[in-house]
């Protein structure tokens, strides 16, 4: 498995995401890779979160989730069953998710480097035009879309 200087291999991004998923969100409902996702994240309502890496490698890791996925994973992580959750709770849980995925991507790339704290938004992700997508993992969880993408500055 070669790691290009511009970013991690897709297989590694997938492995990391699957490990985060199965560790904290259970393996009852598997995260299934999807190969035909459109370029625009296919959810009318979404949450997204990103972390950036600076140092031996520069880039960003972004997670996009449909609202149903974001809410479900928040309930699982907080163990709140059907109790009401707030946006702040969802933002925290989604932020921790991208922290874990991004932190592991960072350790794949040349170091040393530092990881920023997560930035979370209610909505799909938008990426600066000076960044190019170097890896994208699309999946479905219980029929709902999940996307993890890695961006790096254009060469």
């Amino acid at each position: 498995m070669t790691v290009t200087q511009t970013g991690p291999a897709l297989a590694d991004v997938q492995a990391i995401t699957e490990q985060v998923w199965s560790s904290f969100l259970g393996d009852e409902e598997p995260l299934l890779q999807r190969f035909d996702a459109p370029s625009a994240f296919p959810a009318e309502q979404a949450w997204s979160a990103a972390v950036s890496v600076h140092g031996g490698w520069t880039g960003s890791i972004t997670v996009e989730l449909s609202v149903a996925v974001a809410q479900a994973l928040t309930h699982l992580m907080l163990a709140t069953d059907d109790e009401p959750i707030e946006d702040a709770d969802i933002a925290d849980a989604v932020g921790e998710l991208v922290n874990m995925v991004g932190g592991n991507v960072k350790s794949l790339m040349p170091g040393p480097s530092a990881l920023t704290l997560p930035v979370v938004a209610a909505g799909r992700a938008a990426h600066a035009t000076d960044l190019t997508e170097v890896a994208r993992f699309d999946a479905v969880w219980g029929g709902e879309p999940v996307r993890v993408s890695v961006h790096a500055p254009r060469a």
Partner: peptide, 8 residues
């Protein structure tokens, strides 16, 4: 679209 359980 229930918050807790996932569809299908």
């Amino acid at each position: 679209r229930r918050a807790r359980s996932l569809p299908i």
